[in-house]
Amino acid sequence: MNQKESQAVNRREFIFACKRALPLAGLLFFPLSATDLILAQENEKYNPTEHNYAMGIDTHKCIGCGRCADACKKENNVPLEPIFFRTWVERYIIAGNGEVSVDSPNGGIDGFPEIKGDKEALRTFFVPKLCNHCANPPCVQVCPVGATFISRDGVVLVDEKYCVGCRYCIQACPYGARYLHPEKKVADKCTFCYHRIVKGLLPACVEVCPTRTRIFGEVGVRSSPLSRFVRFNDITVLKPSLNTSPKVYYAGTDGEVR
């Protein structure tokens, strides 16, 4: 009996001791909660108005492996049919007599077939294509419901919940960068992998490019890799006569590139 009593006291003492130690136990978990807190703060700190995203493409470096187009399809669940692309690679073959032929079999994902025929090829090069995220986009102007818009960080996006699927923007885009998603029945396009860039990651196509053909960065930020690219290369944009002010800058593209 006596022994039992002492045991009960011991147990009570133990519980009280636990109670007193509770704040200390909280300390044990503090480091974890602190990192959570910091992470949360970092997420909150993302301010879209501070960014203006753009891409540089160094066509000298492109080897036409098509990994960018493949990665894009996998990352963004783009339908696998060869008529839906957010990004694709074109091959230009300029013959000796100045004749230009372009091809892009399956967007370059499966590589390119050997150049056939005995025509002498003067120059050949690859040009990766994607949405140019124009600062003055024709697709945004024509949308009847305002579903496509320029985000505050300079990316042209489509709101799937508002798009009526009228395909006006697909007709308006001079770069052929849009398609109607066959399952969602809404217009779909390159988003610069918006879900990735807001976390500070690179777009999927930039991430996988083995030759660093694609350079992702911000306009007007000196520390951005894009500024270096723009400083040390001769920059052109596609179809400048249309006055769309594209934000995909090409280095080393010929006049033949449309």
């Binding site: 692309f85 372009v102 091809d103």
Partner: peptide, 19 residues
């Protein structure tokens, strides 16, 4: 794609579909 087999020249992949 079969319909465009006879077409020579290049068009953007997304523009094969007639909208």
């Amino acid at each position: 794609l079969q319909g465009f087999h006879e077409v020579t020249g290049y068009m953007y992949p997304n523009e094969y579909e007639l909208h």
